[in-house]
Amino acid sequence: MTTHAGETRSRIMQAGIHIALAAGAVFMLLPFWLMLRTSFTAPDQIFSGNVLTLTHFSLDNYARVFAEVPLLRYYLNGFVVVGTIFLGQVVICVPAAYALSRLRFAGRELGLWIVLAAMMVPYHATAIPIYVLLSQFGLINTHGALILPFIGSAFSVFLLRQFFLSIPQSVFESARLDGASPYRILIHIVFPMARPAIITFGILSFVSHWNDYFWPSFVLRNDFAATVPFGIVRFLDQELGADYGPQMAAATLTVLPLLIGFLIAQRQLIAGIAMSSGQVD
């Protein structure tokens, strides 16, 4: 009898949680619905009637995006840029994070400070000098301009360092006692072990660089190396007469690959984050 009552109470609890989460989800999802709704509404109907319902379905906005910008090229560029940044970050940041968290050397604390401070500097502060530097090397309008400034990522180092700190020192220590050189330890222990953390910062790095709008619009002037958000720039309202329809269609097309990727990689992502936020021991 009591277990039955307990079961009922627990079911009510479960239903209550679902309802509460659903209420919160309205807040999380409403902007997405508005984006989709606007992107699928005929241009002359966007402002008429109820802005919540889709009554005049049309693909005109998408047709215009595909007609006006080389979207496939943007997708390809996006993958190249994001992929290269990720590989570069793995090569540069994993060894550095390992050294900063698990090796003892003079200047480690200073190095740590530099990394943490660099993580907090807003990148608008350094935009113009970096632009000048890139142009000196003829990199404006190239993929290099989108990739190079982000390879030495302080945030990735921070994330990876948190992760390494959560691994018992004894693991590294035993290898060292066995006579393994730091490089060997790096390749045979650190890299394989850091996989979950690498996946995490990989996904975060992917999300932020795929979606980045400011930097591409700052260093690019043509479509050669342009990534997807660059396409939205064309439809932004700098002057009177905003093109909300194509703008939202472009935004939807930007987010789409990420959402699909996220749904596929969700389990891995969450497992990875669990490892890197200093919890696993």
Partner: peptide
Amino acid sequence: AVYFLPVAATLVAMSIV
């Protein structure tokens, strides 16, 4: 997945929404 969606969205486009 539902609560993570905004993290993956393009902020400049969502700001307009």
